[in-house]
Design a protein around this nucleic acid. Structure first.
Lengths: 209, 209
DNA sequence: TAGATTGTTAATCGATTAACAATC
DNA sequence: TAGATTGTTAATCGATTAACAATC
């Protein structure tokens, strides 16, 4: 369960997939699974799965495989979904409001607790049970609430400035939906850049002309 | 410009990033750039950039670097953003409506031309200038319009069934927002699985406990 | 015990980085 | 010509795959 010894990004991005697929197996009342079976369902190899899991510990049993429920719990703990961290969302436009209401933050290890915007017309508007407040109140909010993560649903033009603001207020992680990809050298800050249009462009690339 | 000789996914996912960063340089009126400068701005290495670009051709000039405008155009052609393909969106719930109106499909090489849903209450509702129609009309729509790509904004439970439907109707690419990741062995079909919650979980993983 | 499947080491494959001759 | 920077080959690094002894 130690994240210490530099787990590669390739492994990390597979953890949520394992987690999700195991939850499907649980809902199908499947008790045990071998790396071979898991591999065939997830388009991976059995070796890869065993290598991945052994970064964190030996969760299986020779001759048996893995207990689905137990492995699901372990991976949940590795990701950290069992301990909710504190998230805030900035930018309550079209996309921001959808993310706030559509995403199940709790299942991903977060409690979404505040939404900020710079447009006075939507101050007080409730999204997913949370009232939108002015971005001007962000700093004072942070001094009392110390959020861990900021979800940025803002235009590229504002991205760098807002990112610097949230980091100076102690934010340790950014889930960035803006087009501008945010790059920080300080590795105590983790930034996950989504870049929806980049993703769409890869679909375009793969089509024959 | 040949996509034939198996370009690796690592390279492909960087193409939209180059494209976007070059467009920023254009708007800053910067005419030329070296792989070294580009690298430092994008957190890559100069070697990597030259290797990437040389998968498609020699776009630079020794002693000079790359012409920003020309390289931007070339990469645009490689991705295919200059030739709009035909996209349809399925699932006009919260997320689907946001994607339809928020995304600039044209900039990514697509024309979004129809939206389908199974909820009669929203049939006729206009989203981004397009009226939502019944999913029952999908097949007949395809027989006359032959769309290339389907954007799936549907619940996981419906994902596999709808994916099979769209493929049987001749769709060649899927931009999948559902949690269920769609895996097809047929490599004439390209699927880009977004998995927003997986992305959020990687942010959770990187936070200290 | 025999069969199955893990955990783990070694081999392979692929991607990134370094180096440098070519050349603008 | 001298300086800069590419295109490209070779070296390194890391991730995936294969193999197999350990063991349930």
């Amino acid at each position: 369960m130690q994240k210490s010894q530099n787990i590669s990004r390739s492994v990390i991005v597979r953890l949520p997939r394992y987690h999700r697929y195991l939850s499907e197996l649980i809902s199908m009342n499947i008790e045990r699974i071998s790396s071979k079976e898991l591999a065939s369902h997830m388009a991976l190899t059995a070796s890869q799965i065993r290598q991945d899991l052994n970064c964190f510990g030996g969760f299986g049993q020779q001759g048996y495989g893995y207990n689905v429920k137990a492995l699901y719990e372990e991976i949940g703990k590795i990701i950290g979904v069992d301990k909710l961290k504190h998230a805030v969302l900035i930018g309550a436009g079209n996309l921001g409001r959808t993310i706030a209401s559509y995403m199940n933050f709790n299942d991903c290890g977060f409690e979404l607790s505040a939404i900020f915007d710079n447009n006075p017309e939507i101050f007080g508007l409730t999204v997913g049970g949370i009232a939108v407040q002015s971005i001007d109140e962000f700093e004072s909010y942070c001094s009392t609430n110390t959020p861990d993560v900021a979800v940025l649903c803002i235009p590229s033009s504002a991205a760098t400035e807002i990112a610097n603001t949230v980091i100076s207020c102690g934010i340790k992680g950014i889930w960035n939906f803006s087009q501008k990809d945010l790059i920080f050298q300080d590795d105590s800050i983790y930034v996950e850049n989504l870049r929806l249009s980049d993703s769409l462009m890869t679909v375009r690339y793969h089509l024959k002309d």
